[in-house]
Computed example of a mutant assay.
Amino acid sequence: MTAPTFQHLDAVTLERWLKDATPVTLVDIRDPSSFAIGHIPTSQHLDNQSVSALMHDAPAEQPVVVVCYHGHSSMQVASWLVAQGFDDVYSLDGGYSEWQLRFPAQVETSR
């Protein structure tokens, strides 16, 4: 039996989901200052301090999309989330860099 795994998601599909108001839990694992400078709208910063809240509060029926800088570290976190019991987990291919390049008008700041 094959263990469940995460899926890959491209920025265009995520943008469509957000435009269509598809329910999704969007987590950004970049460092706090990078997140503050710019992040994908509706995303929440995920780190060691906030992961327990995610585990407790994330709606089980919603997909979880993990965002990092370039789409590499997010794969590890997405695998970990699947191992923790999340069923519908995605790693954003190209990460925040790809998002910012494709959709510069769709970037929020925390400053």
Rank of each mutant, 00 (worst) to 15 (best):
H56T: 12
L46N: 00
F35C: 07
S33F: 15
Q62L: 02
A36Y: 09
H56G: 01
H56V: 08
I29S: 04
A53G: 04
G38D: 10
I37Q: 15
L54N: 05
H56K: 12
V66H: 04
S43E: 08
L46P: 01
M55Q: 00
E61P: 06
T42M: 13
S34H: 13
A60F: 04
A58L: 05
H39R: 09
A36M: 12
Y69R: 11
L46G: 03
M55W: 01
I29N: 10
S43F: 08
A36E: 15
V51Q: 03
Q44K: 12
A60V: 04
D57R: 13
P41H: 11
R30M: 00
S33V: 14
V64R: 04
T42K: 12
L54P: 01
R30C: 10
A36W: 09
I40C: 12
A36R: 15
I37F: 13
H45Q: 14
M55A: 02
S33K: 15
H45A: 06
V65C: 02
T42S: 15
D47R: 04
E61I: 07
E61F: 08
H70S: 12
Q62S: 03
V65F: 09
L54D: 02
A53I: 10
P32I: 12
P32N: 09
S33H: 14
I40Q: 11
H56Q: 09
S43L: 04
H45C: 10
A36C: 13
Y69F: 10
I29C: 04
A58Y: 03
H39K: 08
Q62F: 05
E61K: 10
P63I: 00
I37G: 11
I29V: 09
D47F: 04
V64F: 00
T42L: 12
V65I: 07
V65K: 01
